[in-house]
Computed example of a mutant assay.
Amino acid sequence: MEIKVLGPGCKKCGTLAEATKKAVEELSIDANITKVDDMIKILSYGVMSTPALVINEKVVVSGKVPSVSEIKEFIKNA
């Protein structure tokens, strides 16, 4: 599974990255988590508000930091 955290490096982006790592650990799945801070790449996903979470190249949330349980649901549904 490929998971990307999109954001320029703000505090919320870091919080989303940590919550995503925790969700992956709790689900005991094999996932590659990447932080993307290049604005051109972020915009290529159609994201106008960061942070954003991309799972298997699909944007699942943008503009807010979901809870760990919400992230786990996004992963299960991917």
Rank of each mutant, 00 (worst) to 15 (best):
M1D: 12
M1V: 12
E2D: 15
I3N: 08
I3P: 00
I3R: 07
I3C: 07
K4R: 15
K4L: 11
V5L: 04
L6N: 07
L6H: 09
L6Y: 09
L6P: 02
L6C: 10
G7I: 00
G7W: 00
G7E: 01
P8Q: 11
P8V: 11
G9S: 10
G9I: 02
G9C: 05
G9E: 10
C10D: 09
C10T: 08
C10Y: 03
K11C: 05
K11A: 15
K11S: 14
K11T: 08
K12E: 12
C13F: 00
C13Y: 01
G14A: 12
T15Y: 05
T15M: 14
T15H: 03
T15R: 09
T15V: 13
L16Q: 06
L16V: 02
L16R: 05
A17D: 11
E18W: 02
E18H: 06
E18I: 01
E18V: 03
T20R: 07
T20E: 12
K21R: 15
K22H: 06
A23K: 01
A23I: 01
A23S: 07
V24E: 13
E26Y: 03
L27H: 05
S28Y: 12
I29A: 07
A31H: 06
N32H: 14
I33A: 10
I33M: 10
T34F: 05
T34L: 14
K35C: 10
V36P: 01
V36G: 05
D37L: 03
M39N: 06
M39A: 11
M39K: 08
I40K: 14
I40C: 04
I40R: 13
K41C: 02
I42C: 01
I42K: 01
I42D: 02
I42F: 02
L43E: 15
L43Q: 15
L43H: 14
L43I: 11
S44A: 12
S44L: 02
Y45E: 05
G46V: 06
G46S: 11
G46H: 09
V47E: 09
V47M: 07
M48N: 04
M48I: 08
M48Y: 07
S49R: 14
S49T: 08
S49M: 13
S49Q: 13
T50K: 05
T50C: 08
T50E: 10
A52D: 03
A52V: 00
A52H: 02
L53A: 05
V54G: 07
V54P: 01
I55C: 08
I55V: 14
I55R: 02
I55N: 04
I55A: 11
N56G: 09
N56P: 02
E57P: 00
V59R: 09
V59L: 10
V59A: 12
V60Q: 14
V60E: 15
V61S: 10
S62L: 03
S62G: 08
S62T: 08
G63M: 04
K64E: 09
K64C: 02
V65H: 09
V65W: 08
P66N: 13
P66Y: 12
S67L: 06
V68L: 06
V68D: 09
S69H: 08
S69N: 15
S69A: 15
E70S: 08
I71V: 07
I71P: 00
K72S: 10
K72V: 06
E73M: 13
F74H: 13
F74P: 01
F74R: 06
F74G: 08
I75P: 00
I75T: 04
K76W: 07
K76S: 13
K76D: 07
N77H: 11
N77G: 09
N77A: 15
A78S: 15
